[in-house]
Amino acid sequence: MQLQQMYQEIILDHYKNPHGRGLRDPYDAESHQVNPTCGDEVTLRVKLDGETVQDVSYDGQGCSISQASTSVLTDLVIGRSVGEAFKKFDAFVELMQSRGQLEPDEDVLEDGIAFAGVSKYPARVKCALLGWMAFKDAVARSEGAKA
């Protein structure tokens, strides 16, 4: 059934038991993103330690897809270099824009591969990318602040 394809157990698990949730100090930059069609929002903070993503913390209100994908994001990027984090970012964005036509690489995206089914629903892709766009924006801001 289509619904189970979209709402994989992994997604529902992250939704019910989110990882890394809650805004934390210290942080270098914060980004607030909204989805204007539904009002979903996320506030996300990034703390860099040199080239390493030391912490990502967030708070938000939204559907299971937006909340779970942000939870997965924190698993994937915390402790990685900024370069590695953006490789995962690119892979996740590519997967979400694939309309179900891409076989995701589990080595790169880990739990993120569960969102492959979501990419078949164009209206929900924005939900899945909400936290990721906040991450990209926050990193750009923190690097900008340091430059």
Partner: peptide, 24 residues
């Protein structure tokens, strides 16, 4: 969440609106 409920309804063929309906 409204989006998730709307998705379940959609899977059953039921078209409804979800979100703030342009009245935020």
């Amino acid at each position: 969440h409204a989006h998730d409920a709307g998705q379940v309804l959609d899977s059953l063929g039921i078209a409804v609106r979800v979100g703030h309906h342009c009245a935020w």
